[in-house]
Every structure is written in structure tokens, then in C-alpha cells.
């Protein structure tokens, strides 16, 4: 992948592409962080074997399949069950005691992608005896990712990593209790799925749709520019119950966001914040 010969022209083309996608398909990437988005656009050029961003715009606006492929390129990241095991240890010790006595627990997993981390939280809640009275709302911009999450079928080869993460994340049982192995695939047990609601949701257009005790929004806003980050922070703040917990990615910060003062830090390293009552 190389850089463009005429950077200013490329910038203009990118703006036109994003405007076109927004107007025609409704996906709004206009306030995404530029550097990362440009990289993915260049990847799309390579994958589609197209030379210019203008030509990519032509392909995307006239071909829904090309739009779908572009959406995958922009939204898909590799994840794993119990990714960042230390987070789950922190949730077990710092978050669970705060929500244990709620009559009904609502958890929102923002940008849930293919669902690995949603099932991880479901397993943790099950082990804490709380899954029965919890509703997990798993949302993503990309419907095809949600479909995969809902299915809950993952390569069996990945289970070794997942099991290692599970144990590092404070798991004490046999991880194989949670899936059925069939040929080269692992299928998540149906009872783990019962309390998960999968829904397409766009943070950019974002309206609050419920009040939650826990919101996980990890490494989602790193792809947004400052102004969109601020808007999303407001949405998350408004969607949290007083005393509710926000989990960000471990290299994300609340500093200089509009609601910095509205939270207290619960775990500095794992970026867990509690909304002040």
C-alpha cells in the first residue's frame, strides 16, 4: 500500500465518497478519525482493484455488494472471547458487587462485532449467578456481523486462545461447558444466548434506547474524531443509570471529554468509570 501522489486531491475524493455513502445508504462515516479511515479506504482500493477513490465511489454507489464489502472493511476488527483478560478480573471484583442486588440488570455492549466479547460477559454473569436476571443488549453498525454473533459459531481452532483468556480472566470452570464442538467448529450453547438481544444501532445517529447498569464501549470511539467522540460520550452518559459503570478500551481516556466530571474512576488501568449519583 502506498500513499497517494496528490494528497490534497485524495482528501477531496475521500470527503466526496463519505458524503455519497451517507446520502445514498445512510451510513455516516464523515466524523470518523481520518488516518485510520484513509487506511481502510486504501485497503478497499486494493481489494476492489480500483485505482482512485472517485472510482471506488462510483462502484459503491452503484453496487450494494460493493457497499457491503466496504462496510466490512471499515467495521471489522479481529476480536476474541475474553480479549483483555484483566478486564474480566476487574469486572468480577469491582463491578459485580455494585450491580448484584439490582432486580433486573441491563448491560449494553456497544460495537459488539461478531459477539465473542458479549458471550464472554454472559459467561461471567452466569458464573456470578446473575445471568438469569440480566438482559444483554449487543449492538453494532454492521448487520452481517450481528448475524454472525447471533449464530455463535466460531472456529474450533480459536478455542485454545479463548480458553487461555478465560482462565486468565478469572474463569474457574471447564470452558468447554460453554460450547459444543462439531467438526472444526464450536457452537455456543443456546442457554447462554437466551438473554442477549442483538440489534443494529448507529452511534452517529445515536439515540438512547434504554437505561443501563453497565455499558461496554471498548475501542469503538478510537475510530471517531473528537467531535463525534464528544457526541457519543453524551449519549453513553445519558444511557447510564446513576451509579452505572462505563468500560472503555485500556488506551482510551475520559480526559477532556464533556462528561469527565460526571464519573469517578473505578479501575484506572482497565478504564472502568462509575457515573456519579
Amino acid at each position: 500500500m502506498t500513499v497517494a501522489a496528490q494528497p490534497e486531491l485524495e482528501d477531496l475524493e475521500v470527503r466526496l465518497l463519505l458524503e455519497g455513502i451517507f446520502r445514498h445508504y445512510g451510513y455516516d462515516f464523515r466524523d470518523y478519525a481520518q488516518a485510520s479511515l484513509k487506511r481502510r479506504i486504501r485497503k478497499a482500493l486494493q481489494a476492489e482493484q480500483i485505482r482512485t477513490v472517485s472510482a471506488l465511489q462510483d462502484a459503491i454507489l452503484h453496487d450494494e455488494q460493493a457497499m457491503r464489502r466496504f462496510l466490512d472493511l471499515v467495521t471489522v476488527d479481529v476480536t476474541a472471547m475474553f480479549r483483555d483478560p484483566r478486564l474480566y478480573v476487574a469486572v468480577r471484583t469491582s463491578v459485580i458487587p455494585l450491580i448484584r442486588n439490582e432486580p433486573l440488570i441491563r448491560v449494553w455492549h456497544v460495537g459488539c462485532a461478531s459477539g465473542e466479547e458479549v458471550y464472554s460477559m454472559a459467561i461471567l454473569l452466569h458464573e456470578e449467578g446473575l445471568l438469569e436476571k440480566t438482559r444483554l443488549y449487543a449492538t453494532d453498525l454492521n448487520q452481517s456481523l450481528l448475524d454472525r454473533g447471533k449464530e455463535g459459531i466460531y472456529p474450533l481452532s480459536a478455542m485454545q486462545t479463548h480458553t487461555g483468556n478465560y482462565l486468565a480472566g478469572g474463569g474457574t470452570r471447564a470452558f468447554s461447558e460453554y460450547y459444543a464442538a462439531r467438526y472444526d467448529r464450536a457452537q455456543i450453547k443456546p442457554w447462554l444466548k437466551a438473554n442477549i438481544v442483538w440489534a443494529q444501532h448507529d452511534l452517529v445517529a445515536g439515540a438512547s434506547f434504554n437505561e443501563f447498569h453497565v455499558i461496554l464501549c471498548r475501542n469503538v470511539m478510537i475510530y471517531f474524531n473528537r467531535s463525534l467522540q464528544d457526541r457519543v460520550h453524551r449519549l453513553l452518559y445519558e444511557s447510564l443509570a446513576p451509579g452505572g459503570v462505563l468500560a472503555l478500551g485500556d488506551k482510551e481516556s475520559l480526559q477532556f471529554t464533556p462528561h469527565e466530571a460526571g464519573y469517578e474512576s473505578l479501575d484506572r488501568r482497565e478504564k472502568l468509570f462509575r457515573k456519579r449519583k
Binding site: 481520518q34 488516518a35 485510520s36 487506511r39 481502510r40 479481529v78 475501542n219 478500551g249
Partner: peptide, 20 residues
Amino acid sequence: PSDYHVLVEDGTFALSVEAP
């Protein structure tokens, strides 16, 4: 940081967790 890509924009760092 390990497990993140580092990109730069005007005067700031931007992280990404796209595939290795």
C-alpha cells in the same frame, strides 16, 4: 502500546485495533 497500531493525525495520536 502492545496490541494497538499507532497512527498520527494533526498533532495527535490515533490508535487502531485493525488486524495485525
